[in-house]
């Protein structure tokens, strides 16, 4: 299946600043694709390039097989977007905001009314639909902006930090909605977020960017896997002898004892059974062995640190 998004050495400079610096990646259809990076990494510029709002300095990008430089209008036709700001008309009501964008996407009156009701109810905003949006809380505005991005049932949605400002319950509900959108309707979501736990839960694939450069791309599992060499052992009677014996094993590169838990670092590909055997031989009563997998956050920080070096 053709990817929904494909970039090839996509580059955008602003004077001497390389906001996006030769990034190449593909986004398959029907997944949540996480675009992760610290502030100023080039995430927003990438979205603007993909929507055809900015011209690339070099390289190219395709969305739905259309060149973003020459077919921006056709691309925007099929996309929904929640950008850096909510983009809501605060002097208008929630209904007016949705009504306007419904008309923009040429939904008929019955569709607009039904869809507005459906989304406002699902986001818990229906009772305040006739209030000016300017009187709403930040979280409510954020929910409405997400509703607006999804209003016309786009095939591809760009969401720039969609859960920022949402309370944990609303954020969880939104994540569930996004998952349903992807699984039931086959929508592709291009998501930027600082919340790596969120990316881990939601995204099938992630790309890590820093200072405009792509550091890694793949599934969260594969990115975490790069650090899959830690083992945690919880037990009793962990003596200094047992610890020394453990450190002497050729496959062990480090071992630290913290509150009856051993944090052991192994050589890549090493078998953890050896360390359990060694500990038992030295009188340790092993309660639990947990194969350590770095969280996406740790993998992300490692990638960023590596790049800094």
């Amino acid at each position: 299946m053709n990817p929904v998004i494909r970039t090839d050495q996509l580059t955008r400079h602003f004077g001497n600043v390389r906001a996006v610096d030769g990034i190449s990646f593909e986004v398959p259809a029907g997944i949540v694709f996480g675009f992760l990076g610290p502030n100023g990494a080039g995430k927003t510029t990438t979205i603007r390039l993909l929507l055809g709002l900015l011209e690339p300095t070099a390289g190219r990008a395709e969305v739905f097989g259309l060149d973003t430089h020459t077919s921006g209008g056709q691309i925007r036709e099929k996309c929904g977007a929640l950008l850096e700001h909510t983009g809501l008309y605060e002097r208008l009501t929630a209904e007016d905001n949705l009504e306007f964008y419904g008309r923009v996407w040429r939904l008929d009156a019955a569709q607009r009314q039904a869809r507005a009701k459906e989304l406002l109810q699902s986001f818990g905003l229906y009772d305040r639909r006739r209030d000016n949006v300017g009187t709403w809380s930040r979280g409510m505005k954020q929910k409405l902006a997400v509703a607006r991005a999804l209003f016309h049932r786009p095939q591809l949605v760009f969401l720039d930090e969609p859960t920022a400002g949402l309370d944990p319950v609303a954020a969880a509900a939104l994540r569930e909605d996004l998952q349903n959108l992807v699984s039931r309707q086959g929508v592709t979501v291009f998501l930027t977020t600082h919340n790596l736990a969120e990316a881990e839960k939601l995204c099938s694939q992630v790309a890590v960017v820093r200072e405009g450069r792509l550091l890694a791309v793949g599934s969260p599992h594969s990115l975490r896997g790069q650090e899959n060499n830690r083992v945690e052992v919880a037990g009793r009677n962990i003596s200094a002898t047992a610890l020394a014996a453990l450190r002497a094993l050729p496959e062990v590169t480090g071992a630290e004892l913290r509150d009856n838990t051993l944090d052991v670092t192994l050589l890549p590909g090493a078998d953890s059974a050896q360390i359990v055997a060694s500990l038992m031989q030295n009188g340790v009563l092993v309660d639990e062995v947990r194969k350590g997998r770095a969280s996406l956050e740790e993998a992300f920080l490692d990638l960023v640190e590596e790049e800094e070096k």
């Binding site: 929507l51 709002l53 209008g73 925007r76 036709e77 996309c79 977007a81 950008l83 850096e84 700001h85 909510t86 983009g87 809501l88 964008y101 923009v104 996407w105 607006r148």
Partner: peptide, 8 residues
């Protein structure tokens, strides 16, 4: 920006 990102 949201307006410009629409299909209009």
């Amino acid at each position: 920006e949201t307006l410009l990102a629409s299909r209009l």
